[in-house]
Amino acid sequence: MTPMFSHIPADQRPTLEIFVDGQSVRARRGDTVSAALLASGLDVRRDSAVSGVPRLPYCMMGVCFECLVTIDGVGNRQGCLIPVAPGMRVEIQRGKRELGK
């Protein structure tokens, strides 16, 4: 799928590697996890915890909690507030979180 958003040519920041559901993705240093996901072109929709319908980030500023993802094994984190880091493991959430994850 072509991503809904693309980087402007003026963006010359170095890239780094993160893993989304195990798949290698190049992200730009300084991006939040949500921005990196939306720019990746992958299908990064999560399933909601209530009825399992697909959702994507909505506000990108920490208020709506639509961007919840599992980061390095910890579930329900706000991807729009957390910057990417080299080697970070991101998992798209399927419904409710599992205890211990």
């Binding site: 991503p3 958003f5 939306l38």
Partner: peptide, 10 residues
């Protein structure tokens, strides 16, 4: 997304 990541709708 634009300000912090230079991302625009495409």
């Amino acid at each position: 997304m634009l300000k912090s990541s230079g991302l625009v709708p495409s």
